[in-house]
């Protein structure tokens, strides 16, 4: 991609991340919530692939870590629900005091649930797109058609992708010299 697009992406990525976190945190005060904010944050991470190249995204995104974060978000949601159960109220009932309306603390346990859902949705979208990207981006060194996002198969994700060209790209990393 041209240089201004790369600079724009590197400048806007943290802003998008912060917007996502802002939308997650203010779920109970203004429109937004865990899901919307999580998707915005996940899209921010993929700015790396869209504006720079796939290898940059792969350096930052380790699918194992995000699968773990997905599970952790889900577990967080459950624990907040169980917390209410343990303290004698029904599952997921609000046990925290209601602060003043219009502030973060006004939602009782809702901000905690929003945060858990935010983490879970962001991680789930990253893992989902990782599957899409691994499928769609394969080594094309055989016929020299330069593909933007080359990824040596058997990388962090470790899955071989059926999209690989029949010549078999076992030697792919070796032949990477020609491409960007």
């Amino acid at each position: 991609m041209p240089a201004p697009v790369r600079r724009y992406a590197l400048a806007v990525l943290p802003l998008t991340l912060l917007t996502g976190l802002y939308v997650v945190a203010h779920g109970q005060v203004s429109p937004g919530g865990g899901f919307q904010g999580g998707v915005v944050a996940a899209t921010a991470l993929h700015l790396l692939y869209i504006a720079i190249d796939y290898r940059a995204l792969r350096r930052v995104r380790s699918v194992a870590l995000f699968t773990l974060a997905d599970a952790a978000g889900e577990a967080g949601y459950l624990l907040v629900g169980l917390g209410a159960l343990l303290s004698g109220a029904a599952f997921l009932r609000n046990v925290l005091p209601y602060g003043t309306t219009g502030t973060l603390a006004s939602g009782g346990t809702v901000p905690l649930l929003n945060a858990a859902v935010g983490v879970e949705v962001a991680a789930a979208v990253v893992v989902l797109l990782a599957q899409f990207l691994d499928q769609a981006i394969v080594i094309e060194s055989a016929d020299g058609s330069q593909d933007q996002g080359h990824t040596p198969q058997g990388g962090a994700s470790g899955r071989t992708s059926e999209g690989r060209t029949p010549q078999g790209q076992k030697s792919a990393p070796g032949s990477e010299g020609g491409r960007r």
Partner: peptide, 8 residues
């Protein structure tokens, strides 16, 4: 942001 810059 920093991780993205270093990765790029």
């Amino acid at each position: 942001g920093r991780a993205a810059r270093r990765a790029a």
